[in-house]
Computed example of a mutant assay.
Amino acid sequence: MRLATLLLFLGFLRAAALAPGDKAPVLEAKDSYGRPVDFRGSYVVLWFYPKAKSPGCTAQAKRYSELYPEFQKLGARVYGVSHDPAQEQCDFVEKLALKGGMIPDPEGRLARAFGVRSLLGFYSRDTILLNPEGRVERIWRSVNPFQDADTVLAYLRGKAR
């Protein structure tokens, strides 16, 4: 019991029991350039990652960027979300010429709302897909950064049939 209490205190246990079909938490957010993000009206992919510029996160970001035109064809918007401050995310985007958006979440509001674990400011690698009606369509927890974008794109392609 002490370990569970410690992990909860550190933010490692999931804060929210979110499930497919649930109404997505209504939150206001801005991307790393300060533009408002609307979570309704189209599919929205939120891929949570631990730290900008780290090897796994770089690979995951590059793959989402490569596939971004395919996501757009399916009417999906794609956002990476991390604890990193906006300027660090902007540097990440510009250094790698990434497509899609980034959302800084330094207070952890989005992470908590979507049940993403956080340990010392590093988010677990989870991906949440919201549908155009503002509901949670699908949740992938502890994803592989090298396969995540392909997995989500395949799911969306299956929905388009």
Rank of each mutant, 00 (worst) to 15 (best):
V44R: 14
L3F: 13
V93S: 02
G121W: 03
S82H: 12
L119D: 09
P25Y: 11
H83N: 13
P20V: 03
S54C: 02
R40G: 01
K62I: 13
K62Q: 15
H83Q: 11
K53M: 08
A149C: 06
P25C: 08
F71T: 05
L27G: 12
G80P: 14
V37C: 13
M102L: 15
Y79T: 07
C90H: 04
L3R: 15
L120Q: 14
P55S: 09
E137D: 14
T151V: 02
S118C: 09
H83E: 06
L18H: 11
N144E: 09
G75P: 03
G75N: 06
P104V: 06
K53A: 07
G21S: 07
E28T: 11
D22S: 14
R2V: 13
S32T: 05
E137A: 04
K62A: 04
G34D: 07
S124M: 08
G115H: 05
I103N: 10
L153N: 00
Q87A: 05
G34Y: 10
S118R: 14
L96M: 05
G134P: 15
R135S: 07
Q147F: 04
F92E: 06
G21I: 07
S65E: 07
A16L: 03
V26L: 12
L74N: 01
L156S: 05
L130I: 12
S65Y: 09
A154K: 01
E88F: 04
F122L: 15
C57I: 05
V143S: 05
G134I: 09
R77G: 02
G21N: 12
S82F: 05
S42C: 04
N144Y: 02
S82A: 10
P85Q: 15
S65F: 06
A24E: 09
M102W: 15
E137Q: 12
R77V: 00
